[in-house]
């Protein structure tokens, strides 16, 4: 079912206009396939269904790559603004601070927030195993999201606020959890 969904998506996305019914059917088929796999074989079934749909998409990509014509497309121009151009200042200090904020400090903030969630889960009867495992998964997930959000923040003050809020919530929750 998930394989059919990928093929239908491929067809829908190749059309000139946007076909909402076709796209809807493709996405519905995909969700249905995953639900059916989950109902039949649990998480194992969902994983195998995901692998099947990705393999099908790879096969479609292989065909697209094989049949792609040799042409001279307009070269890429979108700038990433990662390094300064010639003559521009390097802003080393600013970059280092961004690194400190997005890597070690964001880890601490994410851990604090994950621990706060653990306190909340425990207080609501989630069970010790569930609460601990959620914390173990949540820390890296929150850190990943924080890295992106912090790097999208336009002002340094916003970044500090984004770090401070989870630290405050986490700290207070841990204190409350210890009491």
């Amino acid at each position: 079912m998930t394989v059919a969904a990928v093929l239908l998506l491929r067809h829908a996305w190749r059309l000139q206009g946007r076909s909402v019914p076709l796209l809807g059917a493709a996405w519905a088929l995909l969700v249905l396939g995953l639900v059916a796999a989950g109902a039949g074989q649990g998480a194992w079934g969902v994983s195998v269904a995901c692998l099947s749909l990705m393999l099908c998409a790879f096969a479609c990509l292989a065909v697209a790559g094989w049949t792609a014509p040799r042409d001279k497309a307009r070269p890429l121009q979108r700038r990433a603004h990662m390094l300064p151009d010639a003559g521009e200042p390097s802003y080393i200090g600013r970059r280092l601070l961004t690194f400190l904020i997005t890597v070690p400090l964001a880890l601490v903030a994410s851990l604090a927030l994950a621990l706060a969630v653990r306190v909340w889960l425990s207080a609501n009867g989630a069970g010790e195993a569930n609460a601990n495992v959620v914390t173990l998964f949540l820390t890296p997930l929150l850190w990943s999201i924080s890295v992106v959000l912090l790097m999208l923040a336009k002002r340094r003050r916003t970044q500090w606020l984004m770090l401070g809020a989870p630290l405050l919530v986490g700290g207070l929750s841990i204190l409350w959890g210890m009491m």
Partner: peptide, 23 residues
């Protein structure tokens, strides 16, 4: 939307970017 659009042999970095994005 471009998930199956693969200009694999295009020049100017387009082919490389398409491979990167589709994969």
């Amino acid at each position: 939307r471009d998930a199956f659009r693969l200009r694999a042999r295009s020049s100017g970095g387009v082919g490389l970017a398409d491979w990167h994005n589709r994969l």
